[in-house]
Design a protein around this nucleic acid. Structure first.
Lengths: 208, 208
DNA sequence: GTTTTTACCGTATGACGATATGGTTATCAA
DNA sequence: TTGATAACCATATCGTCATACGGTAAAAAC
């Protein structure tokens, strides 16, 4: 049998190179040749792992989406373990979408670049939509649980609140990016929005 | 003296062709040749009016930004003339940013496509930032005036409210675009957000 | 009518990039 | 050891595109 290699590892390596290129020089600067150079491999090897450039880009987009979602999930899990108030956990979770440090800035830039192209690339649009759906579901569930435990008023609508919170978060990310809002201002707005829904104290803890 | 032509008219014609192409097939599909074809003129003539492709794209971006701002201003002016409550006027003005009909969907798509490229094109980023600044200033002024006329609580901060309202609006536009929210849901969220700041009735009318 | 300037066109050119192709090398099973 | 297969590389090919360039026609001034 032949020589072997860690397929997924290689694909991740290439995806990372793509993201680095996008963050540094924009999506238009991403060519197969440059990606190969950034990853320290040959053009041929990139072709070996991705049939086409589009497939490569799609995988890279998936890569960052998964990265962000992983951190969000981790924050939520940690929140559950430490029995913290839902509002605080969500504040941290949603802040993962804000370009507040180098890592998140890079992710934001990459995501935004792909979002622009996704307008005419259904496969990319689907990645974007899937992430949004996942977050929205998390938020709706958190609000729902908040109602049961007393942090949220009984007549609140989880779906409406979820859309509102996701919209505010994505909008704030834009404001921060164009330096139209300081980090502190954006975080305070996020807190205000959370406070509008999470008005009470948790009586009986439940997973968000 | 030589033959004459309406310079601005031609430039608008070309910008319109660019926007049409972007909306239909994406920014990557915009080539000088295709733009010329869409505008019904020759490649050479496009070059006559724009030295480079980048200059052409920049002008097109400016074009849509100005278009949207013109409608926003018009709505605000109309609101002033008819002495309508500020909250209602803002609801309509901000709805101009939501992809609710064919015109606004096109503008949204074009804007979003450019925003993606603006990450590495300072000239494009400036157009985006300028529009955001203008809207934010309008919003802050509206809230300020609302305080004076009684529609807004005296202790509200116009800057914070402006950032919040702009963020929500841009975020809702994204949700509508990816069909994560219906038009009605988005508009109701926008109303909720406006109601959070505009809590009272106007006693003494003032321009928003 | 002639001249001059600009509006406008068609094509040539040169660069770049995605993908195809024809290799070489390393590893494993037999 | 050997043969098979996958990992990996370098370059050729072909299309596309931005821009350069050389031209024609029209209109305004004289």
């Amino acid at each position: 049998m032949p020589r072997t290699a860690d397929h997924e590892q290689r694909r991740r390596q290439i995806a990372a190179a793509v993201c680095e290129l996008i963050s540094d020089q924009g999506l238009d600067a991403v060519t197969v040749a440059r990606t190969a150079a950034a990853a320290g491999i040959s053009v041929g090897l990139v072709q070996h792992y991705f049939r086409t450039k589009d497939e490569m880009l799609l995988h890279a987009f998936d890569h960052v989406g998964a990265s962000i979602r992983a951190r969000v999930d981790q924050r939520i899990q940690a929140g559950i373990e430490h029995r913290r108030p839902i509002a605080g956990v969500l504040a941290e979770a949603l802040a993962e979408f804000l370009p507040l440090d180098a890592v998140r800035r890079t992710e934001f830039r990459v995501t935004k670049a792909f979002a622009g192209r996704a307008l005419d690339a259904p496969a990319l649009a689907e990645v974007d939509a899937a992430t949004a759906r996942a977050v929205r579901a998390d938020l709706a569930r958190a609000v729902h649980n908040g109602k049961e435990c007393g942090e949220v008023e009984p007549d609140a609508d989880p779906e409406t609140a979820a859309v509102r919170l996701l919209a505010v978060t994505e909008g704030l990310a834009l404001q921060i990016h164009r330096a139209a809002a300081t980090d502190e201002l954006a975080l305070s707005v996020l807190d205000i929005e959370l406070a509008a829904t999470f008005t009470g104290q948790c009586r009986q803890y439940k997973n968000p």
